[in-house]
Design a protein around this nucleic acid. Structure first.
Lengths: 248, 248
DNA sequence: CCGAAAACTTGACACAGATCAAAGCAGGCT
DNA sequence: AGCCTGCTTTGATCTGTGTCAAGTTTTCGG
């Protein structure tokens, strides 16, 4: 692990409040590793040996059942994933693969479990993180059950615009194929839906999104605080995709 | 609150390991209340003032968006609900209504938040509870995205049979209307699907389910440990419905 | 025990979304 | 640069699921 990584990790809400000694102890038993793109890091069903912290690159969390699979989230630096499985000492419910060349810190889950018994501040941080993750998945389950795919796409486009700072133009931060899977639809259907939305206040050109009539799009998406955030919740790794960036 | 309630609450994994003094303190600031059937206990969006513990009766957790609504879970005695919102001191993401006459203990969420800073065993219990809830919602999100409605129904029927102890005949523990909503489909569609499944190894007679060919049904449902459990996870209030009972 | 209200079922139909197939297009690699 | 793989789009078609409407059954309160 590089020394310059430590401050970044320390800055995560999960590790921010614990004592320096305990933080050091945790980091001492951890190690960094670099993975090439499209590499499977975790297979669902395996036992959760390590908490993962993404430092560079990005990681897709996905679930599979038989032949089918679907994207559950994408994790970007700097954040952690599969905390819950580590804590329960249980099999992972999701698989993980790198989307690009990715550097990851691995924290042994046994150390983790020992640590929150010793460090109250850490325990409180874990509690907050888990509660946030939980709420984040609940939000996406609500979206899935309450909205149809057109509404989900519209809400997604609108939300990205807000996350990028209210801009009217931005680039999709993930491939459409992946976005489709995340939104619970086929790539073909997403493609058509994006096309159809051009009559509803948004122009799509490749990965570029241009919102031409925010109110109109908003009428369709009917964004909802309790589904779309603004989530102080899902800032950690819950069940969301990367944010669009201002000016990108 | 009745004195005889305390042991039952104390027995919950959430409260089992904390010190007696702290448990008493928490209970002292709590109070019981009895609600009639079909009463709205919680409206999504309200601030989370109390952790709820169901002692008698049952409670439906549901989400709404505009006119639409859907069932997220049903909570039965003795267990807690909306822990995550209490911890985050955030608005509820779900609404709650009683399904029958229901007795509930209300624990002020401020006391709760103070308590896990003071009592490490309680903090650990909260961590475990939240991790379990999280995993439970992930499971149901996976089911929703990976299976079609017929597969979800088949898996549900099979799972209930196992939860009731592997029986081949049991009664549905909830109304079909509610089950449909939980499974993300319309009542009409559920009705037709149940009918169609009669060619696949189950017989449905009103609320009675008779599994006539477990293997055949299993082939269709393809039950999966990482979706359907057996979840040591969702024994608490995650995102599940009541279990069928042996002999019912 | 009866009547009203609610839950459930069934049928006809419409539409959203999946699938299959094939044609562009773009990005990465040698 | 140029090829090749994999993403994306488009079209045609089909299936699953929702909707509307009417009927039946069950439940529950008086």
């Amino acid at each position: 692990m590089r020394p310059e990584d430590l401050p970044e990790i320390r800055h995560l809400s999960l590790f921010r409040d614990m004592s320096q000694v305990n933080f050091n102890a945790l980091m001492d038993s951890s190690y960094a590793q670099i993975f090439p793109p499209s590499l499977d890091l975790i297979r669902q069903g395996d036992l959760a040996d390590f908490l993962h912290i993404v430092l560079d690159g990005s990681v897709e969390l996905y679930a599979s059942w038989g032949e089918r699979e679907c994207t559950m989230a994408v994790v970007e630096p700097v954040s952690t994933f599969i905390l819950a499985a580590c804590i329960r000492d249980a099999p992972y419910l999701m698989s993980a693969r790198t989307l690009e060349r990715t550097r990851i810190i691995l924290v042994p889950s046994s150390d983790l479990r020992a640590m929150f018994r010793r460090d109250t501040e850490f325990a409180v941080a874990v509690i907050n993180e888990l509660a946030a993750c939980y709420r984040s998945v609940v939000r996406s389950a609500k979206a899935l059950k309450l909205r149809n795919s057109r509404e989900r796409v519209a809400a997604y486009l609108l939300r990205q615009s807000l996350l990028a700072g209210g801009v009217l133009s931005y680039r999709l931060p993930v491939e459409k194929r992946l976005l489709a899977s995340y939104l619970g639809m086929t790539p073909e259907n997403l493609s058509r839906t994006l096309r159809a939305l051009e009559a509803e206040g948004v122009k799509i050109d490749g990965a570029r999104v241009i919102i031409t009539d925010r109110d109109r799009l908003s009428d369709l998406a009917r964004p909802d605080l309790l589904i779309d955030g603004p989530d102080l919740d899902a800032l950690g790794a819950g069940a969301s995709l990367p944010h669009a960036r201002r000016g990108a």
